[in-house]
Amino acid sequence: MKKNDWIIAGIIAIIAGSVFIWNYIKEEGVEGEEFVAEIYYDGELYESVSLREVNKLVVVETTIGTNVIEVNEGNVTMIEADCPDKICLHTGTIKKANRSIVCLPNKVHVQIKGNVEDEIDAIVQ
């Protein structure tokens, strides 16, 4: 291992660390705020579900495929998907703001959001 190796590893660690902190700050959300699970298809909002819902199932049926998302008292899980890689099913349950489950083959993604206007995402979309 040479000096430049450590520099590269250091740069990557710094990038990872700063994005981690950035994500962590956003995950905290605002006290008492209501979280919603926003379900997107092809970058467009498909359905928005309050996290207070109990055993609510959302079926996203598109020309590409079908995904079933369960929202249950603050927990969001992708419980069914007919995509080839099943990465979205392996992601498991998400609870915190700004966490997401992505099913790329079906172009579906779910992200938990607070009610505050999200600057970064507003610019991107």
């Binding site: 590893a9 990557i12 660690a13 990038i15 990872a16 660390g17 994005v19 981690f20 950035w22 994500n23 997107y40 092809d42 970058g43 700004n98 966490r99 997401s100 992505v102 790329l104 172009k107 993604h109 992200q111 999200d118 970064i120 995402d121 991107v124 979309q125």
Partner: peptide, 23 residues
């Protein structure tokens, strides 16, 4: 990921874990 979901924020949520795995 960012291109298909049309959101950089979604892609960024995966970055820290992926960087550690890359190391």
């Amino acid at each position: 990921v960012a291109f298909i979901t049309k959101s950089i924020g979604v892609a960024l949520t995966f970055l820290p874990m992926l960087s550690i795995s890359a190391l």
